[in-house]
Design a protein around this nucleic acid. Structure first.
Lengths: 182, 182
DNA sequence: AGCGGCATGTAAGCTGTTACATGATTAC
DNA sequence: GTAATCATGTAACAGCTTACATGCCGCT
């Protein structure tokens, strides 16, 4: 899965501009796939060149022109081709987990601070997703609901562990700490 | 955080070869940072060139020579510099979540199959981590225990959602499904 | 005879990021 | 007046992956 597969998927839902696509990334999709303008626009250019999508310039009043892209039949076949390809394994990279892994070379204060920052960030993401979920839950497709529940439950689990991690560092206990009432 | 920061962190624990480092990645670290030989060896070369580590060739009987690397004082200072830098946000990219997001353009059969594959893979990772945890829990540093608990709880939460997702797809219910006994 | 483990590395290429460049309108 | 939003794009670079290249040892 790469940028152009996701762009194609978004255009399956109807014509969009590069700007629209970036917006849609930010609310929902960004929890498992992020992209910058520097990847969206080149992806659109490439898809247009290979005939997967077509461009139409829409003149707007008081705003810059929009370059709206529509998926072609060839593009739809390409998207089905993506869906038929093997599922790629998830990719997860975490700086905070690396710092915990090497935690004994740092200060306990820093560890607690990093964990608290991680909690705060995840609470922010959680709230954002919950709001979007409450607003749209009645019209979302079943699989999309699963993707949202996945991120929701994931953030909640991570927040719990990080909070428990802070308590653990401050308790001075051994590994038995994690074996009480899991 | 990049490959050389992690390599430096691993060398803080004592001298290691490129092969050793790749081995250690595979058991534990790989849950939040993976690297191939193509990134480990160039990282070592670069770190040696800049004086962060020093090489010593150890002749072995019946096996190829090992190039053992030891961290220098400069390297240790560099590692402390990394720990003092701002924590980078987590990076998560998931093909299966993308396929769920665009799920209405695919078949329900495929969705269930992908979810089941995701569950199986996570059960495998969970078992692997649990085994490593049971074997070493008494000697692991507190922060490293947190990093393991993080992955453990995370996989468990993901497996639960994916299982519930399969049940949901097969139940034919609406979004209320997710609001019973969360 | 062949495979898996041990062990080191390189080269080409893919993918994506960051920073830059431009410019109008609207709200504070 | 100045910041944010709307809107499009490029160029240079970073960072990592894949595939390749090599070779011995021990087991089956």
């Amino acid at each position: 899965m790469q940028a152009k597969d996701v762009v194609l998927g978004l255009l399956m839902q109807g014509p969009k501009s590069g700007y629209d696509i970036k917006q849609e990334y930010e609310m929902g999709l960004s929890h498992f796939f992020d992209a910058s303008y520097g990847s969206v626009y080149p992806a659109l250019k490439q898809l247009e060149k290979s005939g997967m999508i077509v461009k139409e310039i829409v003149v707007q009043e008081g705003k810059p022109n929009k370059h709206m892209f529509t998926i072609t039949e060839l593009g739809e076949r390409q998207f089905q081709h993506y869906l038929a390809s093997p599922v790629q394994p998830d990719f997860y990279r975490s700086d905070i987990l690396a710092r915990l892994y090497f935690g004994k070379y740092g200060s306990a204060d820093a560890l607690v601070r990093w964990l608290q920052e991680g909690i705060d960030e995840r609470i922010r993401l959680l709230r954002q997703l919950e709001t979007a979920y409450e607003e749209h839950k009645a019209v979302l497709s079943p699989p999309r609901l699963i993707s949202i529940q996945f991120s929701l439950q994931d953030y909640q689990a991570q927040i719990k562990v990080m909070q428990k991690g802070i308590d653990y560092l401050q308790s001075g206990q051994g590994y038995e700490f994690w074996e009480m009432s899991s």
